[in-house]
Protein backbone atom coordinates (compact mmCIF):
# COMPACT_ATOMS: atom_id res chain seq x y z
CA UNK A 1 0.00 0.00 0.00
CA UNK A 2 1.19 3.45 -0.86
CA UNK A 3 -0.90 5.19 1.73
CA UNK A 4 -0.70 4.44 5.40
CA UNK A 5 -3.40 3.30 7.73
CA UNK A 6 -5.26 5.85 9.78
CA UNK A 7 -7.55 5.38 12.73
CA UNK A 8 -9.41 8.64 12.88
CA UNK A 9 -11.75 8.31 15.81
CA UNK A 10 -9.68 7.61 18.86
CA UNK A 11 -11.74 8.92 21.72
CA UNK A 12 -8.95 8.52 24.19
CA UNK A 13 -7.16 11.58 25.42
CA UNK A 14 -3.60 10.95 26.53
CA UNK A 15 -3.23 13.18 29.55
CA UNK A 16 0.47 13.82 29.69
CA UNK A 17 3.56 13.31 27.58
CA UNK A 18 4.18 9.88 29.02
CA UNK A 19 0.79 8.47 28.09
CA UNK A 20 1.03 10.17 24.71
CA UNK A 21 4.37 8.44 24.17
CA UNK A 22 2.79 5.12 25.14
CA UNK A 23 -0.07 5.69 22.76
CA UNK A 24 2.18 6.66 19.87
CA UNK A 25 4.57 3.76 20.40
CA UNK A 26 1.66 1.34 20.40
CA UNK A 27 0.09 2.85 17.30
CA UNK A 28 3.34 2.74 15.35
CA UNK A 29 3.95 -0.81 16.57
CA UNK A 30 0.57 -1.79 15.14
CA UNK A 31 1.47 -0.24 11.81
CA UNK A 32 -0.56 2.92 11.76
CA UNK A 33 0.78 5.85 9.82
CA UNK A 34 -1.39 8.29 11.64
CA UNK A 35 -4.19 8.62 14.11
CA UNK A 36 -6.82 11.15 14.89
CA UNK A 37 -7.60 11.97 18.48
CA UNK A 38 -11.09 13.31 18.79
CA UNK A 39 -12.09 15.44 21.70
CA UNK A 40 -15.36 16.92 22.77
CA UNK A 41 -16.09 20.66 22.83
CA UNK A 42 -15.15 22.36 26.12
CA UNK A 43 -13.45 19.19 27.21
CA UNK A 44 -9.88 18.55 28.14
CA UNK A 45 -7.44 19.63 25.49
CA UNK A 46 -4.70 17.32 24.35
CA UNK A 47 -1.34 18.73 25.24
CA UNK A 48 0.64 19.38 22.10
CA UNK A 49 3.21 16.68 21.69
CA UNK A 50 6.77 17.37 20.66
CA UNK A 51 8.70 14.17 20.92
CA UNK A 52 10.59 11.70 18.77
CA UNK A 53 7.46 10.26 17.16
CA UNK A 54 6.38 13.58 15.77
CA UNK A 55 8.58 13.32 12.71
CA UNK A 56 7.03 10.19 11.25
CA UNK A 57 3.68 9.76 12.96
CA UNK A 58 0.81 11.82 11.62
CA UNK A 59 -1.17 12.87 14.66
CA UNK A 60 -4.28 14.83 13.83
CA UNK A 61 -6.92 16.33 16.03
CA UNK A 62 -10.63 16.16 15.54
CA UNK A 63 -13.64 17.48 17.31
CA UNK A 64 -16.69 15.41 18.06
CA UNK A 65 -19.82 17.47 18.43
CA UNK A 66 -22.69 16.16 20.53
CA UNK A 67 -25.56 18.57 20.13
CA UNK A 68 -29.14 17.57 20.64
CA UNK A 69 -30.55 20.76 19.20
CA UNK A 70 -30.33 20.76 15.38
CA UNK A 71 -30.59 24.55 15.28
CA UNK A 72 -27.42 25.01 17.32
CA UNK A 73 -25.45 22.46 15.33
CA UNK A 74 -24.56 24.81 12.52
CA UNK A 75 -22.93 27.44 14.73
CA UNK A 76 -21.04 24.77 16.66
CA UNK A 77 -19.65 23.27 13.47
CA UNK A 78 -18.58 26.57 11.97
CA UNK A 79 -17.01 27.54 15.28
CA UNK A 80 -14.88 24.43 15.56
CA UNK A 81 -14.19 23.46 11.96
CA UNK A 82 -11.36 25.97 11.57
CA UNK A 83 -9.63 24.99 14.77
CA UNK A 84 -9.46 21.25 14.19
CA UNK A 85 -8.34 18.96 11.40
CA UNK A 86 -11.70 17.30 11.00
CA UNK A 87 -15.20 17.44 12.43
CA UNK A 88 -17.27 14.51 13.58
CA UNK A 89 -20.94 14.91 14.39
CA UNK A 90 -22.56 12.37 16.59
CA UNK A 91 -26.03 11.83 15.23
CA UNK A 92 -29.03 10.49 17.00
CA UNK A 93 -32.59 11.46 16.23
CA UNK A 94 -33.63 11.80 12.59
CA UNK A 95 -33.84 15.60 12.65
CA UNK A 96 -30.34 15.89 14.03
CA UNK A 97 -28.92 13.57 11.38
CA UNK A 98 -30.67 15.53 8.65
CA UNK A 99 -29.25 18.83 9.75
CA UNK A 100 -25.81 17.24 10.23
CA UNK A 101 -25.59 16.00 6.65
CA UNK A 102 -26.90 19.30 5.33
CA UNK A 103 -24.29 21.43 7.09
CA UNK A 104 -21.04 22.27 5.37
CA UNK A 105 -17.89 21.49 7.25
CA UNK A 106 -18.86 18.09 8.60
CA UNK A 107 -16.42 15.34 7.69
CA UNK A 108 -17.65 12.26 9.47
CA UNK A 109 -21.09 11.28 10.71
CA UNK A 110 -20.97 8.97 13.67
CA UNK A 111 -24.16 7.24 14.67
CA UNK A 112 -24.79 5.60 18.01
CA UNK A 113 -26.34 2.14 18.12
CA UNK A 114 -29.80 1.22 19.27
CA UNK A 115 -31.58 4.54 18.70
CA UNK A 116 -35.24 3.91 18.04
CA UNK A 117 -36.27 6.75 15.73
CA UNK A 118 -32.88 7.48 14.29
CA UNK A 119 -29.94 5.76 12.76
CA UNK A 120 -28.90 5.60 9.15
CA UNK A 121 -31.68 5.55 6.60
CA UNK A 122 -31.69 6.01 2.84
CA UNK A 123 -32.25 9.76 3.07
CA UNK A 124 -29.24 10.34 5.30
CA UNK A 125 -27.10 7.93 3.29
CA UNK A 126 -27.93 9.65 0.02
CA UNK A 127 -27.25 13.18 1.20
CA UNK A 128 -24.08 12.04 3.00
CA UNK A 129 -22.89 10.57 -0.28
CA UNK A 130 -23.74 13.80 -2.13
CA UNK A 131 -21.91 15.96 0.37
CA UNK A 132 -18.93 13.64 0.67
CA UNK A 133 -19.53 13.02 4.36
CA UNK A 134 -18.08 9.73 5.52
CA UNK A 135 -20.07 7.34 7.68
CA UNK A 136 -18.21 5.99 10.66
CA UNK A 137 -18.07 2.23 11.23
CA UNK A 138 -17.08 1.87 14.84
CA UNK A 139 -15.96 -1.70 15.50
CA UNK A 140 -15.14 -0.80 19.09
CA UNK A 141 -18.65 -1.88 20.05
CA UNK A 142 -17.89 -5.35 18.71
CA UNK A 143 -14.94 -5.49 21.07
CA UNK A 144 -16.60 -4.06 24.14
CA UNK A 145 -19.97 -5.76 24.12
CA UNK A 146 -20.85 -9.42 24.54
CA UNK A 147 -24.03 -11.32 23.87
CA UNK A 148 -27.29 -9.71 22.91
CA UNK A 149 -26.02 -6.17 22.57
CA UNK A 150 -23.29 -7.28 20.18
CA UNK A 151 -25.83 -9.15 18.09
CA UNK A 152 -27.79 -5.95 17.64
CA UNK A 153 -24.66 -3.98 16.84
CA UNK A 154 -23.63 -6.47 14.13
CA UNK A 155 -27.04 -6.40 12.49
CA UNK A 156 -27.13 -2.62 12.60
CA UNK A 157 -23.67 -2.35 11.07
CA UNK A 158 -24.74 -4.76 8.35
CA UNK A 159 -27.74 -2.58 7.56
CA UNK A 160 -25.57 0.52 7.43
CA UNK A 161 -23.09 -1.20 5.15
CA UNK A 162 -25.89 -2.10 2.75
CA UNK A 163 -27.06 1.52 2.58
CA UNK A 164 -23.56 2.95 2.26
CA UNK A 165 -22.75 0.53 -0.56
CA UNK A 166 -25.94 1.39 -2.38
CA UNK A 167 -25.45 5.15 -2.31
CA UNK A 168 -21.64 4.92 -2.51
CA UNK A 169 -20.98 7.08 0.50
CA UNK A 170 -17.52 7.10 2.01
CA UNK A 171 -16.78 4.83 4.93
CA UNK A 172 -14.34 5.31 7.77
CA UNK A 173 -13.37 2.26 9.77
CA UNK A 174 -12.29 3.11 13.29
CA UNK A 175 -11.69 1.43 16.59
CA UNK A 176 -13.42 4.19 18.54
CA UNK A 177 -11.01 3.50 21.37
CA UNK A 178 -11.89 4.89 24.79
CA UNK A 179 -8.68 3.74 26.39
CA UNK A 180 -5.27 2.66 25.24
CA UNK A 181 -6.30 -1.00 25.54
CA UNK A 182 -9.13 -0.52 23.03
CA UNK A 183 -6.77 0.21 20.18
CA UNK A 184 -6.48 -2.56 17.60
CA UNK A 185 -4.15 -2.97 14.67
CA UNK A 186 -5.25 -2.43 11.06
CA UNK A 187 -5.39 -6.15 10.25
CA UNK A 188 -7.49 -6.77 13.34
CA UNK A 189 -9.88 -4.02 12.32
CA UNK A 190 -10.19 -5.62 8.87
CA UNK A 191 -10.98 -8.97 10.48
CA UNK A 192 -13.57 -7.37 12.77
CA UNK A 193 -15.14 -5.56 9.82
CA UNK A 194 -15.46 -8.85 7.97
CA UNK A 195 -17.79 -10.01 10.76
CA UNK A 196 -20.54 -7.77 9.42
CA UNK A 197 -19.79 -8.38 5.78
CA UNK A 198 -17.31 -5.69 4.84
CA UNK A 199 -14.82 -6.95 2.29
CA UNK A 200 -11.10 -6.60 2.79
CA UNK A 201 -10.78 -4.05 -0.02
CA UNK A 202 -13.54 -1.87 1.41
CA UNK A 203 -12.01 -2.05 4.85
CA UNK A 204 -8.58 -1.07 3.57
CA UNK A 205 -10.07 1.83 1.64
CA UNK A 206 -11.95 2.91 4.76
CA UNK A 207 -8.67 3.14 6.64
CA UNK A 208 -6.35 4.54 3.97
CA UNK A 209 -8.00 6.46 1.14
CA UNK A 210 -11.04 7.83 2.98
CA UNK A 211 -9.15 9.39 5.92
CA UNK A 212 -6.46 10.67 3.58
CA UNK A 213 -9.12 12.37 1.46
CA UNK A 214 -10.65 14.01 4.53
CA UNK A 215 -7.31 15.31 5.70
CA UNK A 216 -6.30 16.46 2.23
CA UNK A 217 -9.37 18.64 1.77
CA UNK A 218 -8.84 20.16 5.19
CA UNK A 219 -5.17 20.83 4.71
CA UNK A 220 -5.58 22.41 1.30
CA UNK A 221 -8.25 24.66 2.71
CA UNK A 222 -6.13 27.83 2.68
CA UNK A 223 -7.67 29.27 -0.45
CA UNK A 224 -11.07 27.91 0.39
CA UNK A 225 -13.79 30.52 0.70
CA UNK A 226 -17.04 28.60 0.62
CA UNK A 227 -18.43 25.51 -1.02
CA UNK A 228 -17.51 25.72 -4.68
CA UNK A 229 -15.57 29.00 -4.36
CA UNK A 230 -11.86 28.69 -4.05
CA UNK A 231 -8.99 31.11 -4.27
CA UNK A 232 -6.66 29.93 -6.99
CA UNK A 233 -3.11 31.16 -7.19
CA UNK A 234 -2.66 34.09 -9.49
CA UNK A 235 -1.72 33.18 -13.02
CA UNK A 236 -0.38 35.40 -15.76
CA UNK A 237 -3.35 36.51 -17.87
CA UNK A 238 -3.39 35.30 -21.48
CA UNK A 239 -2.12 38.05 -23.80
CA UNK A 240 -4.45 37.64 -26.73
CA UNK A 241 -7.60 37.93 -24.67
CA UNK A 242 -8.96 40.92 -26.67
CA UNK A 243 -9.40 38.82 -29.77
CA UNK A 244 -12.16 36.84 -28.19
CA UNK A 245 -14.11 39.85 -26.97
Amino acid sequence: MVEGYYDLCIRYLPEDDHSMERFLSLATHFGFKGAGITQVPNGKVVASYTGPYKSYFDLVRGIEIHEDNPAKLHSQISHYSKKFDFVIVEGGADKLNRSAVETAGVNILSLPFGIKDGGLDHVIARSAADKGIAIEFDVGSLIRYRGGKRVLVISELKQRLMLVRKFEAHMVLTSGARSIYDIRGPRELIALASLFGMTKEEAIRAMTAAPAAILRTKRNANGFIMNGVELIEEQTPPEKQEEFC
Binding site: R144, D182, E188
Partner: peptide, 12 residues
Amino acid sequence: EERSRAALATIT
Protein backbone atom coordinates in the same frame (compact mmCIF):
# COMPACT_ATOMS: atom_id res chain seq x y z
CA GLU B 1 -7.11 -17.14 10.09
CA GLU B 2 -9.29 -14.09 9.68
CA ARG B 3 -11.98 -15.52 11.90
CA SER B 4 -9.48 -16.35 14.58
CA ARG B 5 -7.93 -12.92 14.27
CA ALA B 6 -11.32 -11.29 14.74
CA ALA B 7 -12.01 -13.41 17.80
CA LEU B 8 -8.61 -12.57 19.27
CA ALA B 9 -9.29 -8.89 18.69
CA THR B 10 -12.41 -9.06 20.86
CA ILE B 11 -10.38 -9.97 23.93
CA THR B 12 -10.37 -7.01 26.29
